[in-house]
């Protein structure tokens, strides 16, 4: 102690610069690096800003209420109502399967999973599906549902393939949301005599709701934009004029039926581009892409907003 104090005393007497090691060159390098790193951050914003601006300008004069609500037309600009409907329909159908399974899977991983070989296998499966290319998942759907089950190109085949593809994401986000709940809450509930399942149902899950909803919305955003999975499962044909009064879901001509081909907005963009036909192709694709981007923005900001509001409400109460 005394020796240390002594040495500090001696060196402070020689009026040292505390940054003795930093030469002028290294200070210059430090400044340059700071500028470059700020530059990378600015570049990200610049790219995003120009993309949004680009689509805002490209969609100007294309996107209108009639563009959203009309059927496609051969001779005029027409609209994208059927494919937009299919996107929403596919989203709902996929989330109907993926959310419960993903949430329950997340509960297992967060609350029950022990450190054993089965948990290891589940983690490996989770990582594997996340890294398998979407087109390969689509091809798997093609063999399994379209060919082996003889369903043909159907909304249900597409929704199941999309579920496969997004289940790892939904499970992981649920697990993270549940793990973020403080251990004290669980202990308090168990100490009051609640069983494990009661604790999960009435304490852990309600407290995790902001995180869970964020997870659902982020997954929904990915499902909404996905195309490669759907090319060979839900089909790529031009949708017919839908009759929304036909509520018979077993009838393949009803827009409510899962047993019909369902070309979504993303797939429609791909289709229009690869076929390259029609005088209004570019405007239609620009307008559709602008709508897709707006939906992504809405999903993202929505997830942020809902998460914040809910967590404020829950922590306040």
């Amino acid at each position: 102690m005394t020796a240390n104090a002594g040495s500090i005393g001696r060196s402070s007497g020689a009026k040292p610069s505390l940054k003795g090691k930093a030469s002028r060159g290294s200070i210059l390098a430090d400044r340059a690096a700071t500028v470059v790193l700020w530059g990378t951050g600015a570049l990200v914003l610049l790219i995003l800003g120009s993309i949004i601006l680009h689509f805002a300008m490209a969609a100007w004069g294309v996107v209108s209420l009639s563009f959203i609500l009309d059927n496609p037309s051969q001779t005029t600009l027409g609209g994208i109502m059927p494919v937009l409907w299919n996107s929403i329909y596919m989203l709902a159908l996929t989330m109907l399967i993926a959310v419960p399974v993903g949430l329950l899977g997340g509960i297992y991983m967060a609350e029950y999973a022990g450190d054993n070989i089965v948990t290891g296998a589940i983690r490996f499966a989770e990582e594997s599906i996340s890294s398998v290319p979407s087109i390969v998942v689509g091809l798997f759907g093609l063999i399994l549902f379209v060919d082996d089950f003889h369903w043909g190109f159907t909304a249900l085949a597409g929704a199941l393939a999309l579920t496969f593809f997004n289940l790892p994401l939904m499970t992981r986000l649920s697990e993270q949301a549940l793990r973020a709940v403080p251990q004290d809450e669980r202990s308090a509930s168990l100490a009051l005599g609640a069983t494990k399942w009661q604790t999960i149902r009435h304490v852990v899950v309600p407290l995790a709701i902001p995180g869970l909803i964020t997870g659902v919305i982020l997954t929904a955003g990915r499902v909404f934009g996905e195309a490669a999975v759907l090319l060979f499962t839900a089909g790529i044909g031009t949708p017919p004029h839908y009759n929304f009064m036909n509520l018979d879901i077993t009838n393949p001509t009803s827009p409510w039926s899962p047993f019909r081909p369902a070309t979504t907005l993303s797939v429609y963009i791909y289709k229009l581009n690869s076929e390259g036909l029609g005088a209004f192709k570019n405007q239609i694709v620009d307008g559709s892409a602008a709508i897709l981007i707006s939906m992504v923005l809405i999903f993202n900001l929505g997830a942020r907003f809902v998460g914040r509001v809910l967590s404020r409400k829950l922590t306040a109460s």
């Binding site: 949430l103 329950l104 589940i122 499966a125 599906i129 798997f140 063999i143 399994l144 496969f164 289940l167």
Partner: peptide, 20 residues
């Protein structure tokens, strides 16, 4: 039930691998 939900991913991956 929650175990089956989590383990469904193993089934999906296994089937995907076998088919491809």
């Amino acid at each position: 039930v929650v175990f089956v939900a989590a383990a469904s991913m193993i089934i999906v991956v296994a089937m995907l691998m076998i088919f491809i």
